[in-house]
Design a binder for these strands. Sequence first.
DNA 1: TTTATTTATCGTAATATTGCGATGAATAAA
DNA 2: TTTATTCATCGCAATATTACGATAAATAAA
Lengths: 111, 111
Amino acid sequence: MMGITKSEKFSEEQNLIANIAKAFAHPARVAILQHLFKIDACICGDLVNEIGLAQPTISQHLKELKNLGLIKGNVEGTSVCYCIDEEVWTSTKQLFMTFLDQDSMTKSQCC
Amino acid sequence: MMGITKSEKFSEEQNLIANIAKAFAHPARVAILQHLFKIDACICGDLVNEIGLAQPTISQHLKELKNLGLIKGNVEGTSVCYCIDEEVWTSTKQLFMTFLDQDSMTKSQCC
DNA sequence: TTTATTTATCGTAATATTGCGATGAATAAA
DNA sequence: TTTATTCATCGCAATATTACGATAAATAAA
């Protein structure tokens, strides 16, 4: 019964932040996103070489990023061209900026 | 043998981003951080009432945030006053801002 | 000292995540 | 059509995370 997150107890925003943070919560996915930004076009094979993990593992990480909408993939022959979804990234950035910038609203310290 | 993250394959920065993202990857911890910013001083009991989870669960989430350095706790009698570590928060914000702002460096799109 | 209050830790149960070999599906090339 | 290439999916094994009851530890109050 446990190991399950009680998401119904939290706000939409809190769950959204947590879900996107999950996408960032693995170095392979961080590396994939950084590589996609760097190359500005990419196929899965490149990523398998770039990152030292097996092809099914990379494919799984790509699927998670795709499910969240952070990346999109276009089939090009036998390979798939993955890239950042700029619109989703922009709104994600905004969401996290607001969350991270909470300290600018706070004045004092207690301890 | 598996379920273990191969962190040795990634850069210090990639692992740091992933580890801090893990702290944000649960709505309860997002809620705790937001509450600490809002109140600007807090004890665990308040959080148990604020968030609808059992006291040991909240205590566990607080421990994770504390281990990462995002919050610190001062003992005050029988209760503990938890608050944001402003310095750690500032550097975390910087780290994520840089990561999230990668799109501003990119010009075109492929797909 | 005894009792109450508050938080931490232990132990356990259940789900989630990570990783990869084997295999399947889809397209391109021969 | 056969073969090669590339990526997705399945199935499994192992670790990680989440949640909480029970209990311990620490301090305050009586």
